[in-house]
Nucleic acid binder design. Structure first.
Length: 418
RNA sequence: GUGGGUAUAGCUCAGUUGGUUAGAGCGCUAGAUUGUGGCUCUAGAGGUCGUCGGUUCGAUUCCGAUUAUCCACCCCA
C-alpha cells in the first residue's frame, strides 16, 4: 500500500514528461494567439459551488465528488471540473466590470471518484477555456475553432465534431414535458437505467444504447425541433460561422451534456481510437451559470478537453512527439583532480546555457563513455592527469567518432562555435 | 454502483499434466591487456510465482476469499 499510488492515479515519469510539455506549450501558444489568458484557481472549493454550478442532480455531484470537512468545519471538494471555479472567480474578482468578453484558459487536474478504465482516471487533467460576457454566436464558433486548431497543430485526425442545441431553460422544460408525455405509455418497457432517467433527466433516454429503448425513442420528438425561435436563430448562426471557417461538423440531436449549466450550443469531439471513453473534448454555452452563482446575468461558453485522452489519441495515431535535446557534452574524468575540474567546467558551461553532464557514480572511464552514449550526448571529453597538466584535451564527436585536440580553457568557445 | 478478464524478475512474457536449486528476451551492473561509447561475447545482481485460507504426503500450479490491475456498462474529459 505504501508503495502504491491511490486507485485511479497515475505518475508522470521523468522520461515521459516531455510529451506533456510539448502539448502544454502548443496549448499556451494557441491560447495566446486567440487572446485567451491563463487563470489559476485552487484545487479545492466550497462544496456548494459545485452543487449549485454543476447541479446537484448530476452524477458528478451526487456520487463522484471528493468531499471532506476541513478543520474549520467547512465542506470542501476537490474540483471535478474547471468551469465552476472560473465562474466563481469571474464574480469574486468583478471581472464583469472590465471590457467584455473575458477570455481565459486553464490547465488543471480534476478529481472524480469513478471506477477507472481506459481513458478514465480519478485524477485526470483538463485543458479548458471559457469566454464570459458574450451571447453572440460568433464566440461559440471561435471556441470551437480553437479546439479544431489545437487538433490541427498536434496532427490529430479522425476526430468527429458533433454539435447540437439544447435550447434555453424554458424550451428545455417544454421539451422535457413533451418527451415525458411521449414516453409515458412505454415507461415499463424501458431498461432499468432509463426508468430512473425518466424523472431525473429524460433527455438522456434518447442516448441509451439498449435496443429496446432505441426502438421506443425512435419516433420521439426531437429537442432541436422544439427549441424556441431565438435559440433556433442562434444555432443557425453558429453553424454559418462554422461553415465560413470551413469547419466540418455533424449535427447530433442526441447530445445531452451531463452538467446542468449547459444551454443552447453544446458540442463534443469524439475519438474512435481510444476505446469506450472517446469524448476528448466537451463543452457548450452556459448562459445561466453566472447568475445562478450570484453574479450579474452574464452569458458564457467554454469547453473542457481531457489531456490524458488527447495523449492517448495521439499515441493511437502514432503521432511523433519531439524528444528533448540531449546534453551538448559529457565530461568524463579519471581521478580526484580531474573530477573536480570536470565539476567546475560543467558548471561554467551550464552558466552559459550549454547543457553539460558529468559522472556522479564513480564509474570507470569505459562505463562513463557507455553512459554518455546512452544519454545521446553530442560530444564527450575525457579529463585525466595528463589533460590537467597539459591544459589540452580531446573533444570527441559521438556521432562520427572523430576527435580534435582543444585547449580546455577554450571549451566553451569551441562548443559555441559548433 | 454492476459485469467480465488478468496477477511469475525493473519491463514484455514462457513454464511447472501438483514433486528437490522457477526460465527467456530486453533493461541494469561488471569484465573481454595500460585511459574511450555504439556491435559482439562472458559473467553477475534481481523473484517468499499478488495476499490469506482450504484440499493434499507435498501447492507457484487445483479450489475459495481478498486486494490490485485491465476492459465494458454507467457517467464524462
Amino acid at each position: 500500500m505504501l508503495t502504491k499510488g491511490p486507485k485511479g492515479t497515475k505518475d508522470l515519469l521523468p522520461q515521459d514528461s516531455y510529451k506533456w510539455h510539448y502539448v502544454e506549450n502548443i496549448i499556451k501558444e494557441l491560447c495566446d494567439s486567440f487572446g485567451y489568458k491563463e487563470i489559476r484557481t485552487p484545487v479545492f472549493e466550497h462544496t456548494e459551488l459545485f452543487e449549485r454550478g454543476v447541479g446537484d442532480t448530476t452524477d458528478v455531484v451526487q456520487k463522484e465528488m471528493y468531499t471532506f470537512e476541513d478543520k474549520g468545519n467547512r465542506s470542501i471538494t476537490l474540483r471535478p471540473e474547471g468551469t465552476a471555479s472560473a465562474a466563481r472567480s469571474y464574480i469574486e474578482n468583478s471581472l464583469y466590470a472590465d471590457p467584455q468578453p473575458i477570455k481565459m484558459y486553464y490547465l488543471i487536474s480534476c478529481y472524480r471518484y469513478e471506477k477507472p478504465q481506459h481513458g478514465r482516471l480519478r485524477e485526470f487533467h483538463q485543458f479548458g477555456i471559457e469566454a464570459f460576457g458574450s451571447k453572440r454566436p460568433s464566440i461559440d464558433a471561435e471556441i470551437i475553432s480553437l479546439a479544431i486548431e489545437l487538433l490541427n497543430r498536434l496532427g490529430i485526425v479522425n476526430l468527429d465534431l458533433n454539435i447540437n442545441s439544447i435550447g434555453c431553460p424554458k424550451c428545455r422544460k417544454d421539451y422535457n414535458d413533451k418527451l415525458k408525455v411521449y414516453l409515458k405509455d412505454n415507461l415499463e418497457k424501458l431498461c432499468k437505467t432509463c426508468h430512473d432517467r425518466y424523472e431525473k433527466n429524460p433527455m438522456r433516454i434518447l442516448d441509451c444504447k439498449s435496443e429496446r429503448c432505441k426502438e421506443i425513442t425512435q419516433e420521439a420528438p426531437v429537442l432541436l425541433d422544439s427549441i424556441c425561435d431565438d435559440c433556433k436563430e442562434h444555432f443557425e448562426s453558429v453553424k454559418s460561422y462554422l461553415d465560413g471557417m470551413n469547419i466540418r461538423y455533424n449535427i447530433d440531436t442526441g447530445i445531452v451534456r451531463g452538467l446542468d449549466y449547459y444551454t443552447r450550443t453544446v458540442f463534443e469531439f469524439i475519438s474512435k481510437d481510444i476505446g469506450a471513453q472517446g469524448t476528448v473534448c466537451g463543452g457548450g454555452r452556459y448562459d445561466g451559470l453566472i447568475e445562478e452563482l450570484g453574479g450579474p446575468s452574464t452569458p458564457g461558453i467554454g469547453f473542457g478537453l481531457g489531456l490524458e485522452r488527447l495523449l492517448l489519441t495521439m499515441e493511437a495515431q502514432g503521432i511523433y512527439i519531439p524528444k528533448p535535446e540531449p546534453f551538448k557534452i559529457f565530461i568524463a574524468n579519471l581521478g580526484i583532480k580531474a573530477d573536480a575540474k570536470a565539476q567546475t567546467l560543467v558548471q561554467e558551461l551550464r552558466k552559459e546555457g550549454v547543457s553539460a553532464e558529468k559522472d556522479h557514480m564513480g564509474k570507470s572511464l569505459k562505463a562513463q563513455m557507455k553512459y554518455a552514449n546512452k544519454l545521446g550526448v553530442h560530444y564527450t571529453m575525457v579529463l585525466g592527469d595528463d589533460e590537467i597538466n597539459s591544459g589540452k584535451a580531446a573533444l570527441k564527436d559521438m556521432q562520427t567518432g572523430e576527435t580534435q585536440e582543444i585547449l580546455i580553457d577554450e571549451l566553451l568557445d569551441v562548443l559555441k562555435m559548433i
